[in-house]
């Protein structure tokens, strides 16, 4: 038994080591595997590209700190596109941890494009109880967010002039690692008809496909791959593109491990029968 436990211990650590190598080596050598842009991501790009200048876009940071490696490249790519198109961006968060991340992202990417806080972009802050917050924004934004993240009254900012509710919003981008983008579809899209752009983690992708087919969402950017595709459309290599090679090798390693595990099982079965 002790020997068996010992063997298992070594196998597990060998797998951990192989995974570390599979992730680190592509990040060092950057093989640059070719990337295909999917229709779902292309649809988002085309929609934002087709918006008139100064259209208002809400970007909601509905994620926790644990999924930052997947969410930040996505948010950065979408924000760069919005600012490049001279859209007005209003940031907010429906999860407390997304607040600091959202504020930092908006300010950093806004500074890249020389955008002015309060005029070209604003960060409203965090609201708890996401269903209610989403519904409340459909009635009166200034009633839901009386002040911005820094505590200043939002009605005093030039970006808020003429912005009352979803009727004045071209799209809502939900950068989320859970099911909050679904709430945006259920409450903001179904009730108020606003266009929803979900930018989600790869594991949540399957939850959004029904809404994609029913055309309740503009498109779908899922996981690091979605972000990498967006970076390709923007002709700008970022964190996501660099990470895709590592994700490729990690996936291949898992498939190889599954194959080895199954070969071992079949050999053991064959041995028992004989």
């Amino acid at each position: 038994m002790a020997e068996a436990n010992g063997k298992r211990f070594h196998t597990r650590h060998l797998i951990f080591l192989l995974m570390a190598i599979a992730v680190v080596l592509p990040l060092i050598f950057k093989p640059g595997l070719p990337l295909r842009v999917t229709k779902e991501v292309q649809d988002i790009y085309d929609y934002i590209e087709g918006l008139p200048e100064e259209s208002v876009v809400i970007i909601s940071f509905d994620h926790e700190a644990s999924s930052l490696p997947e969410m930040v490249p996505m948010a950065e790519a979408l924000l760069r596109h919005c600012f490049r198109k001279n859209l007005k961006v209003c940031g907010m968060a429906l999860l407390a941890e997304g607040t600091s991340v959202g504020d930092a992202n908006l300010r950093r990417i806004g500074a890249e494009y020389n955008k002015e806080y309060g005029e070209d972009y604003i960060f409203w802050g965090f609201r708890p109880q996401h269903e209610v917050a989403i519904l409340a924004l459909g009635e009166d934004i200034t009633r839901e967010f009386k002040t911005d993240y820094t505590g200043r009254p939002i009605s005093g900012f030039p970006i808020m002039q003429g912005l009352r509710n979803y009727q004045n919003v071209a799209a809502v981008i939900s950068v989320g690692d859970g099911d909050i983008p679904i709430y945006w579809v259920n409450y903001a899209q179904a009730r108020y008809g606003v266009n929803i752009i979900p930018a989600i983690t790869a594991v949540m992708a399957t939850t959004m496909y029904p809404f994609l087919q029913s055309e309740q969402i503009v498109g779908l950017a899922a996981g690091l791959k979605g972000a990498a595709e967006y970076e390709k459309l923007l002709n700008r290599t970022g964190l996501a593109t660099r990470g895709m090679d590592a994700q490729s090798t990690a996936h291949v390693l898992i498939i190889v491990l599954i194959a080895i595990g199954n070969i071992i099982m079949f050999r053991q079965r064959g041995g028992k029968r004989s």
């Binding site: 700190a65 999924s67 930052l68 898992i254 491990l257 599954i258 595990g261 099982m265």
Partner: peptide
Amino acid sequence: QAPMQSTMFSLLAFFVASAAFRGFRAR
């Protein structure tokens, strides 16, 4: 907080690989 939580989440890759090897069988 952010680096600690990201680290915990990143460890999933290692555990998924190990679990896939031991449990994902064509039974």
